[in-house]
Computed example of a mutant assay.
Amino acid sequence: MTDMHDPKGLIRESFRMEGITAPECRTIFLDWALGLPQTADTGAAVTALLAAYADQPADHPMLATLRAALTDTAPAKRRGGRKGRMQA
Protein backbone atom coordinates (compact mmCIF):
# COMPACT_ATOMS: atom_id res chain seq x y z
CA MET A 1 0.00 0.00 0.00
CA THR A 2 1.37 3.41 -0.94
CA ASP A 3 0.41 6.72 0.56
CA MET A 4 0.50 10.03 -1.30
CA HIS A 5 2.56 11.50 1.57
CA ASP A 6 4.88 8.49 1.82
CA PRO A 7 5.07 7.05 -1.71
CA LYS A 8 8.11 4.84 -1.02
CA GLY A 9 6.79 3.72 2.37
CA LEU A 10 9.94 4.91 4.16
CA ILE A 11 8.16 6.50 7.10
CA ARG A 12 5.80 3.52 7.44
CA GLU A 13 8.74 1.11 7.53
CA SER A 14 10.56 3.19 10.15
CA PHE A 15 7.68 2.56 12.55
CA ARG A 16 7.98 -1.19 11.94
CA MET A 17 11.72 -1.38 12.74
CA GLU A 18 12.54 -2.69 16.19
CA GLY A 19 15.07 -0.61 18.10
CA ILE A 20 15.37 2.17 15.52
CA THR A 21 17.41 5.14 16.75
CA ALA A 22 16.99 8.89 16.30
CA PRO A 23 19.97 9.21 13.89
CA GLU A 24 18.51 6.42 11.75
CA CYS A 25 15.15 8.20 11.73
CA ARG A 26 16.78 11.44 10.62
CA THR A 27 18.49 9.60 7.77
CA ILE A 28 15.21 8.01 6.71
CA PHE A 29 13.45 11.37 6.95
CA LEU A 30 16.10 13.01 4.76
CA ASP A 31 15.71 10.26 2.15
CA TRP A 32 11.93 10.72 2.32
CA ALA A 33 12.17 14.50 1.94
CA LEU A 34 14.57 14.25 -1.00
CA GLY A 35 12.18 11.83 -2.70
CA LEU A 36 9.24 14.24 -2.63
CA PRO A 37 8.37 16.16 -5.78
CA GLN A 38 9.72 19.73 -5.80
CA THR A 39 6.16 21.04 -5.87
CA ALA A 40 5.13 19.11 -2.75
CA ASP A 41 4.11 20.98 0.39
CA THR A 42 6.50 19.33 2.82
CA GLY A 43 4.89 20.90 5.89
CA ALA A 44 1.46 19.57 4.93
CA ALA A 45 2.92 16.13 4.24
CA VAL A 46 4.66 16.03 7.63
CA THR A 47 1.46 17.14 9.36
CA ALA A 48 -0.48 14.40 7.58
CA LEU A 49 2.12 11.80 8.58
CA LEU A 50 1.97 12.93 12.21
CA ALA A 51 -1.80 12.50 12.12
CA ALA A 52 -1.53 9.11 10.44
CA TYR A 53 0.93 7.77 13.02
CA ALA A 54 -0.59 9.44 16.09
CA ASP A 55 -1.37 5.99 17.49
CA GLN A 56 2.33 5.10 17.74
CA PRO A 57 4.21 5.34 21.05
CA ALA A 58 4.85 9.00 21.87
CA ASP A 59 8.56 8.36 22.45
CA HIS A 60 9.18 6.84 19.01
CA PRO A 61 12.18 8.61 17.44
CA MET A 62 10.41 9.06 14.09
CA LEU A 63 7.62 11.03 15.75
CA ALA A 64 10.25 13.28 17.32
CA THR A 65 11.92 13.69 13.91
CA LEU A 66 8.62 14.59 12.26
CA ARG A 67 7.80 17.09 15.00
CA ALA A 68 11.24 18.66 14.65
CA ALA A 69 10.65 19.05 10.92
CA LEU A 70 7.77 21.41 11.68
CA THR A 71 9.76 23.73 13.92
CA ASP A 72 11.15 26.92 12.45
CA THR A 73 14.88 27.27 12.36
CA ALA A 74 16.69 30.48 13.18
CA PRO A 75 18.02 32.38 10.18
CA ALA A 76 21.68 31.87 9.41
CA LYS A 77 24.00 34.41 10.97
CA ARG A 78 27.22 35.70 9.57
CA ARG A 79 30.11 33.85 11.16
CA GLY A 80 32.97 36.20 10.40
CA GLY A 81 35.45 36.87 7.67
CA ARG A 82 36.93 40.07 6.35
CA LYS A 83 33.62 41.75 5.54
CA GLY A 84 32.32 41.11 9.06
CA ARG A 85 35.42 42.63 10.63
CA MET A 86 35.37 45.71 8.41
CA GLN A 87 31.78 46.79 9.29
CA ALA A 88 32.50 47.92 12.85
Rank of each mutant, 00 (worst) to 15 (best):
M1P: 11
D3S: 11
D3E: 12
M4K: 12
M4G: 08
M4N: 09
H5D: 10
H5L: 04
D6P: 00
P7D: 05
P7I: 06
P7F: 01
K8N: 10
K8Q: 15
K8V: 02
G9K: 02
L10T: 03
L10M: 08
I11N: 00
I11G: 00
R12L: 07
R12A: 09
R12K: 11
E13C: 05
S14F: 00
S14P: 01
S14N: 01
S14L: 00
S14V: 01
F15M: 05
F15R: 01
F15K: 06
F15A: 04
R16M: 12
M17E: 13
M17K: 12
M17A: 09
M17G: 02
E18K: 07
G19E: 06
I20T: 07
T21R: 10
T21I: 05
T21Y: 07
A22E: 15
P23F: 01
P23Y: 03
P23R: 03
E24M: 07
E24K: 05
C25M: 03
R26S: 07
T27C: 04
I28M: 09
I28E: 05
F29A: 13
L30K: 15
D31V: 06
D31H: 06
D31G: 00
W32H: 00
W32S: 01
W32E: 05
W32G: 03
A33H: 11
L34A: 11
G35C: 00
G35P: 00
L36Q: 07
P37I: 06
P37L: 08
P37G: 09
P37T: 13
Q38E: 15
Q38W: 08
T39L: 13
T39S: 15
A40I: 02
D41H: 14
D41F: 04
D41V: 06
T42A: 15
G43R: 15
G43S: 13
A44L: 14
A44T: 14
A45L: 10
T47F: 00
A48S: 12
L50S: 08
L50I: 07
L50Q: 11
L50N: 11
L50W: 02
A51M: 12
A52Y: 00
Y53V: 04
Y53S: 05
A54R: 09
A54C: 02
A54G: 00
D55P: 08
D55W: 09
P57C: 03
P57A: 10
A58N: 08
A58I: 05
D59L: 02
D59V: 06
D59Q: 10
H60E: 01
H60F: 01
P61T: 08
P61A: 08
M62C: 02
M62D: 02
L63C: 06
L63W: 04
A64E: 14
A64K: 09
A64V: 08
L66E: 07
L66K: 13
L66A: 15
L66V: 13
A68G: 10
A68N: 04
A68K: 10
A68E: 05
A69Q: 13
A69L: 05
A69K: 12
T71Y: 04
T71M: 14
T71K: 15
D72K: 12
D72G: 12
P75A: 14
A76Y: 02
K77Y: 07
K77A: 14
K77N: 03
R78Q: 14
R78I: 13
R79S: 10
G80Y: 03
G80H: 07
G80L: 04
G81Q: 01
R82W: 14
K83I: 12
K83F: 07
G84H: 12
R85G: 06
R85I: 07
R85C: 03
A88D: 11
A88M: 13
